[in-house]
Nucleic acid binder design. Structure first.
Lengths: 343, 343
DNA sequence: TTGAAAGCGCTAACAC
DNA sequence: GTGTTAGCGCTTTCAA
């Protein structure tokens, strides 16, 4: 197999290698790869044979340089919080990697200062390391959105632009209110009437959204909600404390929680008091975490369709990066309820 | 700000832009970035000023093409298994991304067929998309190792070459035997004498290694192990079943498990029988998963030092990719014990 | 339908 | 110390 001089014996074959072997010019090989219909059938076949024999694959760097695209999508991940029962991000990452591959993209991970939502984005952007971003940490609104927009950086958000409903960037989100409504209805169907809510502090858009689903379901049956709601931090201890107070002061027969973490707190309280989850008191969480799946007696939980989210995110990316660009709009997906022993 | 003709107004500045602004040649700018000590102080300052004013950052694709390096590390992730209590991979990913950044690398994620350990690697390698791989799924030995080695692909493994102790590639692993020995000793110190083991089937190298730690600790005190060990699948149900049998037939006062998943099964059995974990029977798991952290009464668990693992992996990568290459060898790290209510 | 020329932005090698 | 030249491997004109 002849090679250009000066190449290391292990260097991957280049266009020129294939061209030489197939007896055509380099451009013809390029066309065979990128615009096969331009070639005559027999030429194409010859080139493809050479490609297969050599195991040729286009050099990414060269292609990236020439096409001004990296086929890389940047995703910023924050360290998973210990002591909580949330693995949303991880399930999403897996799904995103899968969905991206089918669209010809790879996912590039980076980290940033959890307190500064912007770190990390800038460097990747200016060095043209990625074609676009997937932005996930929109729980506090997203300053990234306007920042990225200013810089004309393509991005799709997992999470609504809570703080700016008129934002025009593509986003995908899961309808937390619908999820909690589903959870509450499930409990109503089971005969519960005094259903308590344990959620997050009022400054969390997501928390208030989820709460509204519980509230809506209760109101649709003209059931009271006063005194049945609590807003706390997202920790097991807070969920435990809140459920103790609610149990004492409002006698609920069921709890809907904004997270599995809080729901675990409720399970602790029940066990402390010799109550059995699912028999004496029903509990529903949110996220369908591993914890929900393995804890006794199984925690019923709202499950986000993250595979779908990832697919929609990638659709959005394809729109953004396509020729011509076809910017998508917001997509809201409905979660499901994973039912287990706790209800 | 003058620009070369034909550039889109949003295109990032290039070396040429900086050179023009600073009144030097392009090469000098390149040197200012890559070999600052070659420049005279005042020239350097002038160039750096221009770089700052323009917000210049070298174009990755161009640099990659020229240097034949992508500064990307490939990591294959498999879908997290639902219904288990294992988040090792996710904690590792976070740590790896962090450690890599400090070394100037980014992590590129890809997926593969869980049944075929090789899919995904080949394409990235042949398209020179990554400089190296981090290989993690070595639980069945690692066919990737010899395959990657054959292709002269640099890689560092998280996991020992169980099936080939003479393998020469760099690897980092956590001493599971030491972890389980630690766990068992902890229980011995608490006064337990009949300590049972629940682990994985015999074809798991990792499982046998962990088991050996329990065995060693027991033997060091001349305690019997016969009838006290069980080998099952890594599911909650299996852990539950195994613990029922052991409890009936061997009357252990404590369990050491090869995973938190199995330990959760034990907790189920205890609850079924009205026994209290940590008071009546002690339980220790392995992985320090979220589940261990939030379940009642807290599951004592062996915690892998994944941050350290990631750092060592990156050290290995730096050695492999450095000039000259300094291939590292195996590194074995010792886990710690996260103590909680279950013991 | 195929080939020749140019150039993406950068850095290695060498000349000044 | 600084500038000039060449070329990494590819795709995009445009000509044949």
């Amino acid at each position: 197999m002849s090679r250009l001089p000066g190449r290391a014996p292990t260097a991957p074959p280049t266009l020129a290698d294939v061209a030489e072997r197939a007896g055509v010019s380099r451009q013809t090989v390029s066309n065979a790869v990128n615009n096969p219909d331009l070639l005559r059938a027999d030429t194409l076949e010859r080139v493809q044979l050479a490609i297969a024999e050599l195991g040729y694959l286009p050099n990414r760097a060269a292609r990236n340089l020439r096409t001004r695209a990296s086929h890389l999508v940047g995703l910023r991940i924050n360290a998973a919080q210990e002591g909580t029962a949330n693995a949303t991000m991880d399930r999403f990452v897996h799904s995103l990697v899968d969905a991206s591959r089918e669209a010809g993209y790879h996912v590039l991970l980076f980290t940033g200062d959890p307190l500064d939502p912007l770190t990390g984005y800038d460097d990747l952007l200016r060095s043209t390391a990625v074609d676009a971003f997937v932005v996930t940490d929109t729980y506090l609104g997203n300053p990234q959105a306007s920042w990225l927009r200013e810089r004309r950086a393509p991005f799709v958000a997992f999470g609504r632009p809570w703080d700016n409903p008129s934002a025009t960037h593509p986003w995908v989100d899961v309808d937390g209110a619908a999820g909690c409504e589903l959870a509450t209805q499930h409990l109503l169907e089971r005969g519960h009437r005094r259903i308590a809510w344990i959620g997050w502090r009022k400054d969390s858009w997501i928390g208030e959204d989820r709460r509204s689903g519980w509230h809506r379901a209760m109101k649709s049956r003209d059931l009271p909600t006063t005194g049945l709601a609590s807003r706390v931090e997202d920790t097991v201890a807070s969920g435990r404390g809140a459920s103790e107070v609610l149990l004492d002061e409002a006698q609920p027969s069921a709890f809907v929680c904004a997270s599995d973490t809080l729901a675990m707190g409720v399970l602790h309280t029940l066990a402390d008091r010799g109550l059995v989850a699912g028999r004496d008191i029903a509990v529903v969480g949110f996220d369908d975490s591993q914890v929900a799946q393995v804890v006794r007696p199984g925690l019923t939980s709202v499950r986000q369709p993250l595979e779908e989210v990832a697919m929609e995110v990638v659709k959005g990316l394809e729109g953004l990066l396509g020729h011509p660009p076809a910017p998508g709009r917001g997509v809201l997906l409905t979660p499901t309820l994973a039912m287990r022993g706790s209800s």
